[in-house]
Simulated assay, not measured.
Amino acid sequence: MSMTRTTAIVTGAARGIGLATTDLFLAEGRRVAMVDRDADELQRVAAERENVIPITCDVSDPEAVAAMARRAVADLGEVHALVNNAGVADFGPIDECDFATCQRVMGTNLDGVFLCSQALSPALRAVSGAIVNIASISGLRASTLRVAYGTSKAAVIHLTRQQAAEWGEHGVRANCVCPGPVRTKLAMAVHTQEIIDAYHDAIPLNRYGSEREVAEVICFLCSDRAAYVTGQTLAADGGFESTGVGLPALRG
């Protein structure tokens, strides 16, 4: 059954895909709790927007997440959507990934999704809300230099299925979006022209995606237009995952 969806919580909301998702939710008429651990940037972008509630929170900290959930529910009243977008990356050879690095990446990328979802599940169940977890193409296909990052994102994909399987009876839908290469300021700052050209050659659409394009998928999955969609993993990647290890030179 369709109902008015008027609120959302977005983690990692101060920049990138999280900020683009926030802006789309605002355009839909939702109030948004913007969650991020970067207090200064969060306050800056929140001050430029109406109908937002900025909440500083490190999603890897259970006590901080519990406090965030209490405030978000109190201020929003109801929670119709939760977008678990907060994430960190650490790229390097597998032999150089120490346990502390692995813990840090897992703490935000996996534990953060678990903690936020658990803390907000009563509110989501109360209104048959939607969860969208942001994983990565790196969770679908292995790649060098991404042992902690890719493994954390693969775990998020499976956690999403567990949530869908167990919370479905309460009307809660859980889906996962796996972005491919996205043209963010950070990516463009660290990607050499050689890397950019290689991605363009490997992606069937021959380009990077935009933050807005990924946000459109997230907002769709949070909407009643996706009312019968749950437990799914959707790669917003220009076809990158579909080509596997195929050589671009053999496409034609």
Results as ranks from 00 to 15, higher is better:
residue 7 T to G: 12
residue 9 I to T: 12
residue 11 T to C: 12
residue 11 T to M: 08
residue 11 T to F: 13
residue 12 G to C: 08
residue 16 G to R: 02
residue 17 I to A: 04
residue 18 G to L: 04
residue 19 L to P: 09
residue 20 A to G: 13
residue 21 T to H: 08
residue 24 L to G: 07
residue 26 L to F: 12
residue 27 A to W: 06
residue 31 R to F: 10
residue 32 V to M: 12
residue 34 M to V: 09
residue 34 M to E: 08
residue 35 V to R: 12
residue 38 D to Q: 10
residue 39 A to E: 14
residue 41 E to L: 15
residue 48 E to T: 11
residue 49 R to C: 06
residue 50 E to M: 12
residue 50 E to F: 05
residue 54 P to G: 11
residue 57 C to G: 10
residue 63 E to D: 15
residue 69 A to W: 09
residue 69 A to L: 02
residue 71 R to P: 05
residue 75 D to E: 15
residue 75 D to C: 04
residue 76 L to E: 08
residue 76 L to Q: 06
residue 77 G to H: 06
residue 79 V to A: 08
residue 80 H to E: 06
residue 81 A to G: 02
residue 81 A to P: 04
residue 86 A to T: 03
residue 87 G to V: 04
residue 96 E to M: 10
residue 103 Q to D: 14
residue 103 Q to N: 13
residue 105 V to M: 06
residue 106 M to V: 13
residue 107 G to S: 05
residue 110 L to D: 13
residue 110 L to Y: 15
residue 110 L to N: 13
residue 111 D to G: 08
residue 113 V to P: 09
residue 115 L to V: 09
residue 120 L to W: 06
residue 120 L to H: 09
residue 121 S to H: 01
residue 123 A to L: 07
residue 126 A to C: 11
residue 127 V to C: 09
residue 129 G to C: 02
residue 129 G to Q: 07
residue 132 V to K: 05
residue 133 N to G: 01
residue 135 A to P: 01
residue 137 I to S: 09
residue 139 G to P: 00
residue 141 R to K: 12
residue 142 A to Y: 07
residue 143 S to I: 02
residue 147 V to D: 01
residue 149 Y to I: 00
residue 149 Y to T: 01
residue 150 G to F: 09
residue 150 G to P: 07
residue 152 S to C: 09
residue 152 S to R: 00
residue 153 K to G: 01
residue 155 A to F: 01
residue 155 A to G: 03
residue 158 H to F: 09
residue 160 T to A: 07
residue 162 Q to C: 15
residue 163 Q to R: 05
residue 169 E to V: 14
residue 170 H to E: 14
residue 170 H to V: 00
residue 173 R to Y: 15
residue 174 A to G: 14
residue 174 A to E: 07
residue 175 N to A: 01
residue 177 V to W: 12
residue 179 P to M: 11
residue 179 P to F: 03
residue 179 P to S: 10
residue 180 G to K: 00
residue 182 V to Y: 00
residue 183 R to P: 01
residue 184 T to H: 03
residue 184 T to F: 00
residue 185 K to H: 12
residue 188 M to H: 06
residue 189 A to I: 04
residue 190 V to H: 01
residue 193 Q to V: 13
residue 195 I to F: 13
residue 195 I to D: 06
residue 196 I to Q: 00
residue 197 D to R: 05
residue 198 A to K: 05
residue 199 Y to P: 00
residue 200 H to F: 03
residue 203 I to F: 02
residue 204 P to Y: 13
residue 205 L to A: 15
residue 207 R to F: 04
residue 207 R to L: 06
residue 208 Y to N: 01
residue 209 G to L: 05
residue 213 E to G: 12
residue 216 E to N: 13
residue 216 E to Q: 15
residue 218 I to Q: 02
residue 220 F to I: 08
residue 220 F to C: 02
residue 221 L to I: 12
residue 221 L to W: 14
residue 222 C to V: 06
residue 223 S to E: 01
residue 224 D to L: 01
residue 227 A to P: 02
residue 228 Y to W: 03
residue 230 T to R: 05
residue 235 A to L: 07
residue 235 A to G: 14
residue 236 A to K: 11
residue 239 G to Y: 07
residue 239 G to K: 15
residue 248 P to A: 11
residue 248 P to C: 04
residue 251 R to Y: 02
